[in-house]
Computed example of a mutant assay.
Amino acid sequence: MRSVLRTALGALLTLLVSSAAIFAALAASPGDAASRLAGPKATAAQIAVIRHANGLDQPMPLRYLHWLEGCLHGDFGTSLQYQQSVASLLAPRVGQTLALVGLTALLIVAGGLGAGIVGAVSRRGSAALTVLSGIGVAVPSFVAAALLIQVFALSLGWLPAISTGVGGLRGLLLPALALAVSWAAYLAQVVRASLREALGEEHVAIARSRGLSPAGVFRRHVLRNAAPEITTVSGLAVAGLVAGTVVVEQAFGIGGIGSFLVQSVASKDSNVVLAISLLMVLAFIVTTTATDLLHRALDPRIRGAADSRERQAR
C-alpha cells in the first residue's frame, strides 16, 4: 500500500515539475504570441489589447498559478490561436494518436517477440536477426517513414502516403510501421538474449531430462523466466511512442496531438503546448507504472523484496 502511495505522489510531483519547466521554457522562448495573433500590420496599442485580453501581460509565475488552478478544475485554458477551449481542440486529435499508438504497440510486441523467439531457437534465424535488428535499431523513424512512403506508396501504390483519418487501418499502417521499426528491432535483440540466457539455466536441462516436450519446456521454464525483462522493455517501448508520434504524424499528415504540438509550438500557443506535453508525460508515467507493477507480479524476487521492506517499515 505504501509503495502505491509513493508511486502516486511521485507521479503527481513529476507532472507538477514538468508543467512548471515547460511553462518557463515557453515564457523564455523568443517571439511574442500577441504579435503573431495581431498580424504584421497591427499597432502597438492593438497588440497590447490582445496581450491583456489573454493575460500575457501578467508576470510568468502568476500566469502559471492561474493556469494550474484552472487545471485542477478541469479547465486547460483557451487556445490563443483558435480562441477555443483546449479540451475541445484536443478531443478529436487524441483519438487519432491513440489509434496510431495502439497499432504501433501491436506491431512492436508481435514483431519483436516473434523475431526474438526465432533468433533464440534457430542458428540461421539468429544470424539474420543480428543483421536486420542492427539495421532496424539504427534507422530513425523519419528515415523509415521516407523509405516506406517511397516503396509502398509511390512505387507499389499499395498504401496511401498521406493519412487523412479516412483510410482507417490502411491509412495508419505505414505510419505505425515507421514508428515501430526501431523499437521492434531492439525488442527482438532483448528477447533473443533473454531467451538464450534462460535456455542455459540448470532447471531447463533438468526439465528436458525428465522427458518434457520441447514446447512445454520452452513455455513453462524458458519464456516464463525471460518474461520480466521482456515485459519491461516492451513497456518502455510503448511509453515512448506518444512522444515519437510527433515526427511520424508530421510526415504522414495525421491530425493527431503530435502534429498539433508542432503547430502550437510554432505559433507559441502556450496553453495547447502545455496540455499536450502534460498528456505525453502522463501517458509515459501511467505506462511505466503499469509495466513496473506487471514486472513485480511476474518476478517473485522483486515482489518478495518489496513485501520484506514493507514489513520492516511497520
Rank of each mutant, 00 (worst) to 15 (best):
L129D: 04
V109D: 05
G125E: 08
V101M: 03
I108R: 00
I108D: 01
V101W: 00
A127R: 15
A127S: 15
A128R: 06
V118C: 12
G134Q: 01
R123I: 07
R123L: 04
S126C: 13
L129C: 08
L113G: 12
S126P: 04
A105W: 03
V101E: 02
A105M: 09
V101T: 08
T104V: 05
V118R: 04
V118F: 13
V101L: 01
A128L: 15
V131L: 13
V109M: 10
T130A: 14
S126A: 15
S126M: 12
G119F: 00
R124A: 14
G125C: 09
A115H: 08
G102Q: 01
L107S: 00
L113W: 11
I117N: 00
G111V: 06
A110E: 08
R123S: 14
L107I: 05
G114W: 11
G116R: 02
L106I: 14
R123F: 07
A105P: 01
A110F: 14
G114I: 03
A115Q: 02
G112Y: 03
V109L: 15
A120I: 05
T104G: 06
S122L: 12
G125K: 00
A110S: 13
A115C: 14
G116D: 05
G111P: 03
G134A: 09
L100H: 02
L132M: 15
G114P: 10
A105H: 03
L107C: 04
G114N: 13
V121Y: 06
S122K: 07
S126I: 09
A127L: 12
A120S: 12
I108Y: 07
G112D: 03
G111H: 07
V118G: 13
G134H: 09
G119E: 07
L129F: 09
G102H: 11
A115T: 09
A127T: 12
R123E: 15
A128D: 07
